[in-house]
């Protein structure tokens, strides 16, 4: 309470004040010699803690160079991104160029070779189809 009877405590009525006084008195009830025992127990605990094996400290290898590691990883990410997107752009350009080739500009030999090759493929496909149908007919006749 300590000279606290100023304006702010005027709102605390007399009977509440009385109750607060006895609340304090009750809180201050401790067994005889409690604080001496408290000190003894505490010092024992502290000594026991000091003698207990210390937990192994985990020391980070790069704890001092964290900012450099962050900067390096950022640089790496940006550089990789730049290289990746540049490469992708090049590939798209090449494909676009191939698509833009005009058929009239191609040499005749190239066109002939393409047609011949595809004819061969078509022939092979037809032959295998005929063979399959033939086999089926033979098996149904039997």
């Amino acid at each position: 309470m300590n000279d606290m009877n100023d304006i702010e405590n005027e709102s605390i009525s007399k009977n509440v004040e009385e109750a607060l006084k006895s609340f304090e008195a009750k809180a201050k009830q401790v067994p005889a010699g409690y604080f001496d025992q408290f000190e003894l127990d505490l010092m024992q605990k502290i000594k026991a803690e000091g003698q207990a094996p210390q937990k192994a400290r985990i020391v980070s290898l790069f704890s001092n160079q964290k900012k450099y590691l962050v900067a390096a990883s950022l640089f790496f990410a940006i550089a990789t991104g730049y290289l990746f997107f540049n490469k992708a752009e090049d590939t798209t350009n090449t494909i676009a160029k191939v698509e833009m080739i005009d058929i009239e500009t191609l040499p005749d030999e190239l066109i002939e070779a393409y047609v011949n090759n595809n004819e061969l493929v078509a022939e092979v496909e037809w032959n295998s189809a005929i063979e399959v149908v033939g086999t089926n007919l033979i098996s149904t006749n039997n």
Binding site: A27, V30, F35, E39
Partner: peptide, 20 residues
Amino acid sequence: TQLLKRHREPVFFQIKKMVL
């Protein structure tokens, strides 16, 4: 222990008033 002797009571009573 000097610090403890000086301050143990007010701290203890404050705590006790909180937890009863």
